[in-house]
Write a protein that binds this DNA or RNA. Structure first.
Lengths: 244, 244
DNA sequence: CGGTCACTTGATCGTCTTCAATACCAGTGG
DNA sequence: CCACTGGTATTGAAGACGATCAAGTGACCG
């Protein structure tokens, strides 16, 4: 019900293959490291699927059979406590992948917060494939490292920053979302509910709301009616995010 | 082929390749994936060093020139805010490595909390070497993945658990420290100061102390005078750690 | 011994949570 | 067109949990 798997057989190997071209090039090899010939090999093992918003397509504790690459939409990754408390550990957008588990079982869940399209590879097959694509493996290691780096930054946020600092950090990160290196936009739409922001920042939804309006009243940002956020004073926001 | 695990204390510094044998086998290739011949190659590029307790041997923001493998002692990894707030992101013991940075600059600091011995490799050389050791690269990916997993668990702890739950989680983790899979000891010595525990769990030292005594008064554990901790009710502690 | 350092314990304070009421918005069907 | 609904955001009031400040204890060491 959640899945509408597409038949990989319908893929035309001659035509620019949607999944292999898109996933492999954009996600695993931003710096192009895979030849078109290699892509064809990869394409054979990919399965495409669509997930409607709100559906959980990876569940913590279930056997980790596949490895995913998003091609559209946004998903949240999270861990939950039995009593319902949730910590979102990250968001994944188009071109990013997930499911890099070391264990035989997923240790987190993933839910589409926008309609998601992804292609996935069976882990056992991928493992064998990787042997033939050392550059791809290298790239995977790079990605894992940078995720680890992000995770450490988030631990600092969760363990030591105040609500204001957390939100400032988050908004700055969002403003840089998907842009190369040092670039940032001043105005953007937040595709994430306040409640999810709260679960990401380790706060309550109410505190997120209050903190938003407080930052707005301090003229650090402005909240357009439509849910668009404009950063008015990136300078001060940056200072706030770093804690002084 | 079976490798003989070497005791680092008995290593003869004059012997040919103490580091390569120890580091490579124990850390990078617990499941043996490197041949003795390969080890010799690695040994050429390794440098051994000793760090006294309290010394910072990796500093956030400095060029990430090397990649480390600990052979003795314990180190804490941490990130700090300009005003002095600190979040410890993990502890590293013998046989583990660190410095898997994706960037050109370290994004965390490392300080020896016990006298540390480590061998390190220059990143540029290692990069080239890895090309020749696909199994080693694969192992690195595995390690990075499991670190990521641990990081996510810690985010849940920092973002959503109470002080009691944090300490319970921490003590259970410590009780399993270094043991294979499901094993745990009931009594152990904590090599970490309360203040460091606090910085790891996102609490104040005072709260750590209070929580310790409270758990002891509830007969979940007992605090021997010498700083040894004995877990009296692992069952209940487990429940507590998971939040119900 | 006097010094330092880590830990303990107590009292007070502040931040964030919780609970609750209200406002808001989009979609639906009368 | 307008009321009705369900979900999401805002705002207020009260309370809890942990931080901070401060004093006191004990161990270790020159």
């Amino acid at each position: 019900m959640a899945y509408r798997p597409l038949n990989p057989a319908t893929l035309d190997p001659a035509a620019p293959d949607p999944c292999a071209t898109w996933c492999a090039v954009r996600a695993i090899t931003c710096p192009e490291t895979i030849t078109p010939a290699d892509l064809a090999v990869l394409a054979v093992h990919a399965t495409v699927a669509a997930v409607p918003a709100g559906d959980i397509f990876i569940t913590e504790g279930e056997p980790a059979v596949a490895f995913f690459v998003l091609t559209a939409g946004t998903a949240k990754l999270f861990k939950a406590l039995p009593d319902g408390r949730v910590q979102i550990t990250g968001f994944v957008g188009p071109g990013q992948f997930l499911g890099l588990a070391a264990t035989e079982v997923y240790t987190f869940s993933a839910e589409a917060i926008e309609p998601v399209r992804h292609c996935h590879y069976r882990r056992d097959k991928l493992r064998a494939l990787l042997a033939g694509f050392p550059l791809m493996e290298e790239r995977l290691l790079e990605v894992a490292s940078s995720e680890l780096e992000a995770a450490q930054a988030h631990m600092l946020l969760l363990g030591r920053k105040t609500a204001r600092e957390r939100l400032a950090s988050f908004l700055l990160a969002q403003s840089r979302q998907g842009l190369p290196c040092g670039r940032a936009r001043t105005s953007f739409r937040l595709p994430i509910s306040h409640h999810d922001v709260a679960d990401y920042l380790g706060l309550s939804g109410e505190t997120v709301s209050r903190t938003f309006t407080r930052l707005a009243s301090e003229r650090l940002l402005s909240l357009e009616p439509v849910g668009t956020i404009t950063i008015l004073d990136a300078e001060k926001l940056e200072e706030l995010a770093e804690g002084d």
